[in-house]
Design a protein around this nucleic acid. Structure first.
Lengths: 226, 226
DNA sequence: AGGCGCTTGTGCACCATTTCACATGGTATC
DNA sequence: GATACCATGTGAAATGGTGCACAAGCGCCT
């Protein structure tokens, strides 16, 4: 554990930690903008809405060590987290499906700010191919391979209707994309080597609906049983 | 477990299960549309992309029991899951923030189909207040209370810029909304009685970025060490 | 130089969730 | 009616994550 055995193959960071790193990063950037130089785990925890011990454990997976009695160096931490989350190199993304959601996503500033510029838009509908959306020309799915190669983009965002999602994913995979963010409300499958995340808007509401319903049922029951 | 002890106060369903129920529901509706009457846990699991034992355990939390040797009744299961996820009653939602994302969300069919009709749109910008978006009049934040009361909606969707998100959340809470879905890329706080979910688009990409980077680093390391 | 106060880093126990494996109990067939 | 087959429902182990509590370490102040 402490011997120098050559190039150290960083161990993987737990998924739960990875999911929190972007939240820490946002808080840290804000602190840095405000001229704050160091931050304690307690402060960072409150900014991120998590437990302080959790923050410390999360940061211990990075090679970013803090200083006891002082805290963590804000700028250094920003560097370390950025490095872990993609090496600090911007990764262009391609959006497939230029409907309501696709258009909104292509205009979303947060992607660019987060280091994910939109490299191109793609759709199957001839009516939108050739148009410009948010400064990007919409290209045909046949051009996807070229687009991916030209721009070197490795991340695809699927914003098609559910019925077209699997085909869109297959096209992306065939083009060499290795990470996919799927907004279509359907389960899609990818080869093992491809990383897939699902964002399902309707599902999120249904989850809220459950809790709301449960609260209501419980309340009724409380009133009945006293 | 079998004695009649009066009005049974259903026990809460684990969060992880609740998050999967909508996925099961989608698969089941598809099966029902195809005229399939019963489904086994194995088939449903493959439709939802999870383990079969997990499906069975999840369904055991509902009062939907299957038939050994046969499987689950598709339509009955649809009813039970719908009931758990909000009682089968449509819950109108209000969207606050009518920018790119807010407009896309207000046009998103999946909400209506999932039982979450858009009851109204709200924004602080006088330039958009009074306009119609997707058939809905955009109203001022000052009208939020009235809107919530009139439509009886209990779910709010925050689609404002990050800087305005906490204020938007506070307004929603003050109006009596008890469930909030926040798309703004910032941590917001709510009282205990309010349920909050966060959907962060840039964060999702950053998580993908981590895995991609990690794969790349590991590969380089593999090549180096043989 | 020494002591004090503050904050990190982490062992450990707890909790939630997943998965396996199998007993249980139905259905269909002969 | 008995038997073979099949899928459910669940105990129990394994896994992954969280949070407490405290030892260790660092800087500041005297």
């Amino acid at each position: 554990m402490d011997d120098a055995v050559g190039p150290r193959h960083d161990e993987p960071i737990p998924d739960a930690t990875v999911a929190r790193l972007p939240v820490y990063l946002r808080g840290l950037v804000e602190l840095s903008d405000d001229g704050v130089a160091t931050v304690s785990s307690v402060v960072l925890a409150s900014l991120a809405g998590v437990n302080a011990a959790n923050v410390r454990k999360d940061l211990s997976y990075l090679h970013a060590h803090g200083t006891r009695g002082v805290g963590y160096d804000v700028d250094h931490l920003i560097g370390e987290i950025s490095l872990a989350l993609g090496g600090g190199v911007p990764s262009p993304v391609v959006i497939i499906g230029v409907g309501n959601l696709g258009r909104a996503l292509s205009r979303y500033d947060g992607f660019l700010a987060g280091g994910f510029p939109v490299a191109g838009l793609v759709d199957v509908d001839p009516a939108v191919v050739g148009r410009k959306v948010a400064g990007n020309l919409v290209r045909s799915v046949e051009d996807l391979d070229d687009l991916v190669v030209e721009t070197g983009c490795t991340i695809g965002i699927v914003a098609t209707p559910a019925a077209a999602a699997q085909a869109a994913v297959d096209s992306l995979v065939a083009s060499g994309v290795t990470s996919i963010l799927n907004f279509a409300p359907t389960v899609v499958t990818v080869p093992d080597r491809v990383d897939l995340r699902q964002v399902d808007l309707a599902t999120e509401l249904q989850i809220l609906g459950y809790h709301q319903h449960y609260r209501a049922v419980e309340e009724r029951s409380d009133r009945a049983t006293g």
